[in-house]
Design a protein around this nucleic acid. Structure first.
Lengths: 227, 227
DNA sequence: TATATATATCGTGTATACAAAAAACACTTA
DNA sequence: TAAGTGTTTTTTGTATACACGATATATATA
């Protein structure tokens, strides 16, 4: 573990939530590596809190599947395998398709306008070739669709699944050869939603994730080989 | 809260997990009612443990959405609204459709054989008119399909969503007028999987949940009115 | 009687203490 | 040297202690 694990005294959240967010971020960004043990006193010292909030945070990470518990041995960061990532992406594919279908039914005129702007925003971001900007524009666009579904449970699940791929998403977006395809995929999704064509929208969303799936699995295989 | 909240010294699980399971069950079966406060010392006394495992269990319930946290006031059992249940069922509809599609691709000959037996088993259970038996046969059947997907993440999510409707499922199954329809729906799903007809399977699963959705929403409205 | 203010009570949030299990280590013996 | 055994260390699991915020209660004053 690199030592840039530091608590952000963001706000008035209970310590357990601050710790939870900190550890979560550290795992998702790869700062805490798969297989690494999470030792309570160690983390407590590092974050300047007692074991109690650490333990409560770990309980949540456990339920999220980001760490696995070994009895009487504590928590360690869950391994990411090709299989586990494929499982996640299969589910996302299905849920993203559901998202756009629901969006067709429920999106408001104002949200549709925002979505249009977000598409243009993404295109502009791509032109800057700034990976961070592209990623942000991508998130913004997807957030609009998510919100338009009006289904809180769905929003939660999709956000959670999306975060599981955080580590690989960046690699994916960095790959400039994909950029035109991404713009086109977004355009198709947008157009389908405008036309309230659920079938087309769902297919477009499916393809969108399918491409990500291919790219991410490819990346994982590269990672595996380099070991 | 009725007082039949008692710890099951099931096994060698850490207390936090025993408490988690106990509270979870109590919430899902309606023994702990929506809006009811979960007070730590109170629960700790009742279950004969200290506050620590109680708190850790609550953290997990929090992430699962079964309780909501109010800062400096503690946890209370989350309300079930028509909206929240509809949200859950929309997602389940999508994921159950995914389940049978994946099952079409991946089910083994042996599992297919089991599925056939489970269909017959369900038909027999229906004839006994014993609600508990019917529910069990239903779970058994769905478990076979779930397992056949080979997607662990999906299995987790679907099981979790299914449990959220636990309270209403029983009412649904009790309703004898639905029984023939249920048998028929299961038959259609089975047949489609045999034929590896993903489209038909997915539609059948969708309808299967759609009917449950109607029944459950109906039930919730009745509950609301009686208040 | 009604309102405001002081005080007590209750419950969470966090830290610490203690027990027991597991792992690491050293020592003995064949 | 290798295997077995006893001992120490580390780390989790659980209980308890303490502080502080929030609410309720009681008292005083208009």
């Amino acid at each position: 573990m690199t030592d840039n694990l530091q608590i952000k005294m963001d706000d008035f959240l209970p310590l357990r939530d601050v710790v939870f967010n900190t550890l979560r971020q550290a795992i998702l960004t790869g700062d805490l590596k798969p297989g690494e043990r999470l030792m309570e006193i160690h983390l407590a010292d590092k974050l300047g809190v007692s074991r109690t909030p650490i333990r409560e945070a770990i309980r949540k990470l456990e339920l999220e599947g980001l760490v696995i518990m070994i009895p009487r041995r504590g928590a360690e960061v869950a391994q990411i395998t090709e299989k586990s990532m494929n499982d996640v992406l299969e589910v996302r594919q299905s849920l993203d398709a559901l998202c756009v279908e629901l969006a067709c039914d429920r999106i408001t005129a104002e949200e549709l306008e925002n979505l249009k702007r977000a598409c243009v925003g993404f295109e502009l971001a791509v032109k800057t070739k700034d990976t961070k900007k592209i990623a942000q524009a991508d998130v913004a666009l997807h957030d609009i669709i998510l919100k338009a579904t009006g289904n809180d449970r769905l929003i939660n699940l999709v956000n959670n699944l999306a975060e599981q791929m955080y580590r690989y998403r960046f690699e994916y977006i960095k790959d400039a050869t994909q950029h035109d395809m991404l713009v086109e995929e977004h355009r198709q999704i947008y157009e389908s939603i405008v036309k309230k064509d659920k079938d087309a929208a769902s297919k477009a969303a499916w393809t969108h994730i399918e491409n990500q799936k291919k790219a991410i699995i490819h990346q994982i295989r590269l990672d595996q080989e380099s070991k």
